[in-house]
Amino acid sequence: MLMKTAITVLALAFALLTNVVTLAQDGEEPRAPYFQSRAFNVPILAGWDDQSGESFAQFHLAEAQATIRTTTRAERDPIAAAEAELAMLTSLRAPPPSYSGKVNLADGTWHVLVYDLEEETTASVMARVAADRVAVISFIERDPAARTAVLTLARSDGSHEVASREMIFAADTLAATAPSDLLQEESVTLPSGEWAVYAGEGMTVMGLVFGNDSYVALQQGEQGDLAALADAYNRTLLGFFITPDNRHYLALALAVVFVILGALVGSLFWRERGLRKDLTVLEELARAEE
């Protein structure tokens, strides 16, 4: 009878599993390609030249002379890590930052830094402590005709759906431009979201609201690919994540599985042993009576 039951269950299981496989294959959609490493993961930027190595993700857009690079560094201090990263990338010693602040994102507190390294090189860096290292995302623009910076700012007023206050703050801080010099243009929709656009003489500012923060990109001089740059940096920052190290939880879960299965199978042996002992006692009693 058990054999018949087993065959029936196997047949049902086969039918169920065939259905599961079909569903799983139907549900498989193409995913955004990711640069993956043990230390971190970031989206691969389509249309950008991929110059990534084993321990860093680096993408370069030749027409904008812009590079977005993500890595982790051994320095314990985020600002020191950011400046060491820039020194390594540009061979330039970082001057005091044009802007320095902090912002709390979902994965932790990031330091936000903007440096004017030399006449044609501007660097925007975000850095945060990640376990025993510091994660650094750098945006470096070397176009002599333009100056481009990207900033992440905590929203000063959560009721506004447009990052107008943060855009004006960025223009004032980085370009010393009075708010009255900026005019609001139509918004632009990019893969990262709908960005507001403010324009002034020789300057464009773009802003995106996401959660409690605003993402601002500012470009001075010859107007070029600000939308593409802002979008790429934003997707890198929001797509950045570190694979958690939770091997000890897996070990604990496996220990629980083995303990329960061991107890189940062990109880069969234990009861079998008890049964044999009882039988021996009964046998001895029977002999004694004889």
Binding site: Y34, Q36, N41, F241, T243, P244, D245, N246, R247, Y249, L250, A253, L254
Partner: peptide, 11 residues
């Protein structure tokens, strides 16, 4: 390894 959940996803 699941890059978002890490090793625990294997359970």
């Amino acid at each position: 390894v699941d890059i978002q959940q890490g090793e625990i996803q294997r359970i």
